[in-house]
Design a protein around this nucleic acid. Sequence first.
DNA 1: CAGATGCGAGAGCACCGCTCACATTTCTAT
DNA 2: ATAGAAATGTGAGCGGTGCTCTCGCATCTG
Lengths: 233, 233
Amino acid sequence: MTGVRERARVATTAEIMRLAREQLAVDGAAGLSLRAIARDLGMVSSAIYRYFASRDELLTALIINAYDQLGAAVEDGEKAVRRRSDFVARWRGATHAMRDWAIEHPAEWALLFGTPVPGYAAPQDTIPPASRYTLVLVTILTDMSAAGHRHDIAVPRSTRADLARLRTQLGTDAGDSSLLVGLTAWSAVMGAINLELFGHLHNVVETPGALFDAVVEQHGRVILGTVRDGDPS
Amino acid sequence: MTGVRERARVATTAEIMRLAREQLAVDGAAGLSLRAIARDLGMVSSAIYRYFASRDELLTALIINAYDQLGAAVEDGEKAVRRRSDFVARWRGATHAMRDWAIEHPAEWALLFGTPVPGYAAPQDTIPPASRYTLVLVTILTDMSAAGHRHDIAVPRSTRADLARLRTQLGTDAGDSSLLVGLTAWSAVMGAINLELFGHLHNVVETPGALFDAVVEQHGRVILGTVRDGDPS
DNA sequence: CAGATGCGAGAGCACCGCTCACATTTCTAT
DNA sequence: ATAGAAATGTGAGCGGTGCTCTCGCATCTG
């Protein structure tokens, strides 16, 4: 069944990815060197290609792994909120888990959400893990909708078609306003994390996470703010 | 005065930067190759180092140039608004100029706001051009304050010190709430542009600029929304 | 006009991703 | 059990990278 080779293969593959993540943390995605990994492994450089056909393939594996880690972290952060009807608390839980993960794994965050590697096109396999963390946010909106919350934000005509497609694609019945509220909140949170992680807050907001908190709270207010009917908790 | 050497030097330097920008647009920051530039210039690779001591130095020149371009674009976009008391229009003008510039110069945008180049620390010279585009946004807040607008957003205690420092640093008399509104709006706009430019809206919002518009409009509403006294135009 | 300075050429160093022919080891099917 | 197939590691090599150094020529300055 599990022969010598099979076990050795998964062990080596795992070791390569471990070393790659280590390198990623030190030198960033651009500094990822297959030769250096081989050296650390005590292998000759060409042997690496038995495990990953190319640098891009290793990159893909790292990206998928990172998306999965992030997804799990966000899921956990959101699930930790006991009062499931406290949607703002769930929003806080999810987004703070995002930021925490980003701060803990800055290189991996940069790999996912920073400058795309030129010449590299992410294959289809990255899509499901990539949508995992976003699904958490969508679920909050879905649950709000189920609880009778209705958002009331102006929806530009140009977004109607996209929002309709999104709704069926995500299998949610949140309204256009709700989806738009979610998207803009997502946008703001991603912006805040990127600004902080990429060093654009130096000499602006030194207190770590202060801007992030403000963004989360403000959009949390918007998320619950424009309630029409239902339960205005 | 302007000897043969002097003129040749500025011409060569300019040509190097032109070719570098060209390369940047094609291959991104990671693909910037001094050797390729030298080749295009009909020079031997080592000659480049007479003009730029290192790849990093060329990068710095490109960054400063890009910040200046962006700054000019945003300034123009904001100045084009005639009714100076229409603050949302000015906000729209500035932010849309940002996005337009980003779409026109994606590689340069990535250079400024994408993953920081590992091992590269931006020197002090980049700070003034970097703050140019932000100053436009701050000016809008300052003018709103002068016009009697007061924002009324909850200000987390943790941000008080930062906001106070920012106020004197920027020479504005916008209140804490106003500054925070500006920062979160900035954050959201940067996030929307990055998401769009870095390809995270594929299968999400296909209509170009739709999410961006929504973000700008929503924060435009927030910018003017929570008015306490003064002129509620 | 002589010395100082600027500049391009060219060789060279250490690294990179990747390919290929070849030897060795392990698995599989007869 | 054994022969052939498949997987794996080796080492040389190709063309590319950023960067350093020396050398000789052109230009500028006292």
